[in-house]
């Protein structure tokens, strides 16, 4: 008897706009999900290379090198669990709400702290 239930829905859909977005031309408005776990951002200036984040990371995505003042992350390993953000003593890690763009190579994102002027402890470079 009832084949019209669906026809009504179809008619309504005909006159309302599409439910999907034309990604990547139109991205989802970020304000809708300020909490989204997108990807890890680092303020490399503030990092003290203590390796706490690397130790805590369940997927071993972070590698920290104190000697080279280098912090790198394998975005494809990272499961955006937020554990590193919670553990960082300097609060220099943050969870950004934008996703890593699609990629075709398995590169690491490498962040290097610019060398500070030696022997002048008074001049602290601006963040």
């Amino acid at each position: 008897m009832s084949v019209f239930g669906m026809s009504r829905t179809i008619m309504r859909n005909l006159f309302s706009g599409p439910a999907t977005r034309l990604y990547p031309t139109r991205e989802k408005e970020p304000h809708r999900a300020a909490r989204s776990r997108g990807r890890i951002e680092i303020d490399i200036e503030a990092c003290i290379f203590c390796s706490a984040c690397a130790k805590r990371c369940p997927t071993d995505a972070i590698i920290v090198s104190k000697t080279d003042k280098e912090w790198n992350i394998d975005r494809l390993r990272c499961c955006t669990c937020n554990a590193c953000v919670e553990v960082c003593p300097k609060k220099c890690l943050a969870m950004g709400n934008r996703y890593t763009p699609p990629t075709v190579t398995k590169d690491k994102d490498i962040f290097r702290q610019p060398p500070r002027p030696p022997k002048e402890p008074e001049t602290i470079p601006g963040a």
């Binding site: 829905t9 999900a33 300020a34 909490r35 499961c79 955006t80």
Partner: peptide, 25 residues
């Protein structure tokens, strides 16, 4: 398609509350 249209809104809500869409973590 209809089911997924509704589901998408639920998943959006989960994302707003927890940060994850499916794997809430």
């Amino acid at each position: 398609m209809q089911s997924f249209r509704i589901r998408e809104k639920i998943v959006d809500m989960l994302e707003e509350m927890t940060g994850g869409r499916i794997i809430l973590g």
